[in-house]
Amino acid sequence: MQKETEMVPSLTWLQKLAGHPLLWGLVALLLLCPPFLPQTYVVQMTDTLLFVLLAVSINLLIGYGGMISLGHAAYFAIGGYTAGVLVTQAGMPMLVGLLAGPLAAALAAAVIGLFCVRVANAYFIMLTLAFGQLVYTVVWKWRALTGGDDGLVGVAPPAILLSEIHYYYFTLVIILACLVLIHRICESPFGTTLKAIRDTPSRARSIGIDVAGFKLAAFTMAGLFAGIAGSLYVFHNRGIFPQSALWVTSTDIMLMAVLGGANHFVGPIVGAIFLKTLNFVIPRLTEYWLFFLGVVVLLIAFVMPRGLMDGYDSLRARLKRMRG
């Protein structure tokens, strides 16, 4: 027994990741399926991948830092707009946009985070919401740079990435790399400290942890990854619009994380795929798609208040008990 527990820390992160069979099945599906799918679904899958990264990045705040942000779309938009403006107005290559977008988002997150991490709970929610709206109004009003409500259009990737399937694999590689990176961050001492802060902030403070500093670092990191999603999005979508910074987008991202299960690394991934699929399917079935989406979310809230992954876990535990 003693020996086994000692063994655990020596497991590499890769071995730990291998312990998620669901994840590996998913990755195999994502790699192999697209060539056999109609283009529509490939576009939809690229879009979903970007929101997977958004949901996982916001989970750095919620699941690890206990910070509920309703302004995450702002960093997504800043990343997208920065990349788009550099490419369309300064004539930079795509690579520069892909690097500068996330950096700008991280910078904005660091500045806004400075004010947000000073407060907690409901104040944090409303502050992030209000700052998100501030970013939205700036995007809307700064027409010369952002195109205002017309959006920034005509942002095309280089010829080789114009094909939907090429862009899909390009996105997939970057997103998978980001997911592995975020997983490593979460499993690192940094992630453990964040969890400690989430669960017992006062105790964390009393043992000398710089709570605000850790929270700000998490906030900035989440902004960085949202910026990566944003700068990938702007090339995929050939442009970006102010709505991408609107609080409704933030709520969507948040909902993905919560719906999938914020306590799991895989939860937000499942949540993003689930919600994006619903958003694709329900409007094609009924004009009142919002109503039915609401009913589905409500049902999940009742049955699995901690998200789909939590529900999956308890179901598995129950099956095990039944068998055992």
Binding site: I68, V258, W289, G294, A301, P305, R306
Partner: peptide, 16 residues
């Protein structure tokens, strides 16, 4: 966090 899901659902349902 847990309150968020029912609240968003309520907004959706009342709106539609």
């Amino acid at each position: 966090l847990v309150q968020l899901m029912p609240m968003v659902a309520l907004i959706y349902i009342i709106s539609d």
